[in-house]
Design a protein around this nucleic acid. Structure first.
Length: 595
RNA sequence: GGUUCCGUAGCUCAGUUGGAUAGAGCAACAGCCUUCUAAGCUGUGGGUCGCGCGUUCGAGUCGCGCCGGAAUCACCA
């Protein structure tokens, strides 16, 4: 409609004022709710052609459109705004077209699909996942779905940080204090078991440091010379040297962690097409760095550490290889990027990583560019904000880390309580009920996180559990289940939804509001894709659900005697449920048929 | 100190490329279930959009300068 109107406006200006107007001067937007009309044209840019007041210009243009364009039923001018009223016939025609379309999402397909790699999750193998990872996973996964919906070939990847001193810490603690404890023997989920020994290491290590400090040793010296730290470092050297005993221990404990992660990922409903391991990619990174020294892109210090000079790019000098030749964080990310480009030839690579690493990714991109990799332009750091508690950051030392598994469990539990209290699922089996509690609990959690603009920090208050009323996932799920319920009832009553019959609809109707909102779906998906913002889509779903609930409250659907109107309302309900369903699906949120 | 991001109602958050009188939810208060699911709907109260200047017919939105908060600037990852 906007593009037709645009054409008509150009025509109007040509005929009325004998001038050609460029596209960017024509501003069309949906009319605000408190004014009469459907579309609003801003008159100010046209004044240079009309040489008249905004009001007069509005009148003249409005009259022209009214007589030359049948879809326009009327207009009014307020200040510099020309509000056009579109005929209901046009709206209904528009809606029918939409309702009969096989796959609405086809409208989102981009002309040039790209190969896009999305990296998300990126866990360390020494601790279980926490709330921060949940935000990361949900964002990454929904970006995958949204970009895929637009026709891109999207590959979900995960890079597991499975090497380094922190991994050795938990291994060492297990070796010293574990007494052969395993997930099976202890009944503890693998990632939590390994995490337990990481915490234990830190505790024992701190005790040693405190002890040394008490004996008069300087704090930094104490940290370096504490026996546990020494042992951990020795273990890392052994690991890098491929010592069989260490490697075997590493493999065993990692396998526990992976089994634990898999369970959490499954609960969250996320998965990956390809998993990279830093223990493999850091070697590639090292090779690349070494060959770049020969090309004089990098330089070597007298102590034989390798650096890149990015002062010309406004950044600092950055270390790429330690003086002992071992790799740092950046080294492995360089290797991973090159490996991925070789394997997939991606056009874009999205790193879903917290904003605390903004500098790191700036450097990564700059280094690759300096090394001559043209595809480095396609790297994009999807930088999202931290999840904070009311009192600030989560801190493991203060035990305020919100564990992912615990949180998911609590959400399900709350869903169960709320649901049982309402008692609408009495005739369901235990398994069916559990499945619904799961959908609702996770729906609440996922929506809570995804509705917030990704690049902002967000607050989570563990004391007040996540809401199930208002602007929440369950609210949207409820709306969906409600519509499903209407259709179950319609079946019982033998009422079929014959969309074509609603074309006989006439008259002034409030349902048009709903149509207007429905039509925004596909453009919202496109915006969410181009702006990398699932939040846009989440808030759209909320707006739609809210609008539908008003409609549902104000009008009877099945009780409506006029079949044309009844069918129209049924069709509206059907399209609403489909859009809510696929909108939430794009966010990775499942919808229950009943709740 | 340098760089990046953020600052909107008591709280959590929306607010399209600058457009009209800044919106939701939660919390508080008052209503609505013999009729399609009340996890819903309706209403009331609540704001110097951190502060100032500038650009513009028009600024929560753009620019500059302050103030406040976060992150980062490691031979940690």
């Amino acid at each position: 409609m906007e593009s037709i109107l645009k054409g008509k406006l150009k025509e109007a200006v040509r005929i009325l004022y004998n001038s050609n107007i460029s596209d960017d001067l024509i501003q069309i937007q949906e009319t605000r709710k408190d004014f009469r009309g459907d579309f609003t044209v801003v008159m100010f840019p046209l004044l240079r052609f009309s040489k008249n007041t905004p009001e007069k210009t509005g009148e003249t243009v409005g009259n022209y459109l009214l007589t030359s364009f049948p879809a326009i039923a009327g207009f009014n001018v307020i200040k510099g705004f020309l509000n056009l009223e579109i005929s209901n016939t046009w709206w209904i025609g528009y809606f029918l077209e939409m309702a009969l379309e096989e796959k609405l999402l086809k409208r989102c397909l981009v002309p040039k699909p790209e190969i896009i790699l999305v990296e998300y999750s990126s866990p360390n193998t020494n601790k279980p996942l926490h709330l921060g990872h949940i935000r990361n996973n949900l964002l990454g996964f929904s970006l995958y779905r949204i970009l895929s919906a637009c026709g891109h070939k999207v590959i979900k990847t995960n890079i597991v940080n499975d090497r380094g001193i922190h991994i050795c810490k938990s291994m060492l603690a297990w070796q010293k204090y574990g007494k052969g404890e395993t997930p099976d023997s202890s009944g503890i989920k693998g990632d939590h078991l390994v995490g337990k020994y990481y915490v234990l290491f830190e505790k024992e290590y701190k005790a040693q440091v405190d002890d040394l400090v008490a004996k008069g040793v300087e704090e930094t010296d104490a940290r370096n010379s504490a026996p546990l730290m020494k042992e951990a470092r020795e273990m890392l050297v052994k690991w890098e040297a491929g010592d069989k005993e260490v490697i075997d221990l590493w493999k065993m404990m990692n396998s526990w962690v992976y089994a634990g992660f898999d369970e959490t990922y499954k609960m969250l409903g996320v998965d990956f097409d390809k998993i990279y391991y830093e223990s493999e990619t850091y070697k590639i990174g090292r090779e690349i760095v070494i060959s770049a020294i020969e090309d004089k892109v990098l330089f070597r210090n007298p102590d034989s550490s390798v650096w890149v000079d990015l002062t010309a790019e406004g950044l600092d000098q950055k270390l790429l290889l330690r003086s002992d030749g071992t790799a740092v964080y950046m080294t492995q990310d360089l290797g991973t990027a090159v490996l991925r480009q070789n394997e997939y030839g991606f056009d874009r690579c999205l790193y879903v990583v917290g904003n605390e690493q903004n500098y790191h990714f700036q450097v990564l991109k700059a280094v690759l560019k300096k090394m001559g990799y043209k595809w480095s332009d396609g790297l994009y750091h999807f930088s999202y904000g931290m999840v904070e508690l009311p009192e600030g950051k989560m801190k493991s030392r203060e035990g305020t880390i919100v564990d992912a598994d615990d949180l998911i469990k609590e959400m399900k539990e709350t869903a169960r309580e709320v649901s049982l209290e309402l008692g609408k699922l009495a005739d369901y089996s235990v398994e069916e009920k559990e499945e619904i509690f799961c959908k609702i609990g996770l729906g609440a959690l996922k929506y809570f996180i995804l509705k917030v603009d990704p690049h902002k920090n967000m607050t989570f208050n563990p004391a007040e559990s996540i809401d199930f009323n208002g602007n929440t996932g369950p609210f949207i799920q409820y709306t969906y289940a409600r519509i499903k319920s209407v259709f179950r009832k319609a079946d019982q009553m033998g009422i079929k939804c014959d969309i074509s019959m609603s074309s006989e609809m006439k008259g002034g109707i409030k349902e048009i509001e709903l149509v207007k909102l429905l039509r925004r779906f596909t453009e919202t998906v496109s915006e969410a894709a181009s702006g990398y913002s699932p939040a846009l889509l989440a808030n759209y779903c909320y707006d739609l659900a809210k609008e539908y609930n008003q409609f549902y409250h104000d009008f009877s659907i099945l009780g409506e005697p006029d079949p044309a109107i009844r069918n129209f309302r049924l069709a509206l309900s059907k399209v609403t449920s489909e859009i809510l369903g696929s909108g939430m699906w794009l966010l990775g949120i499942e919808m229950p048929e009943r709740m």
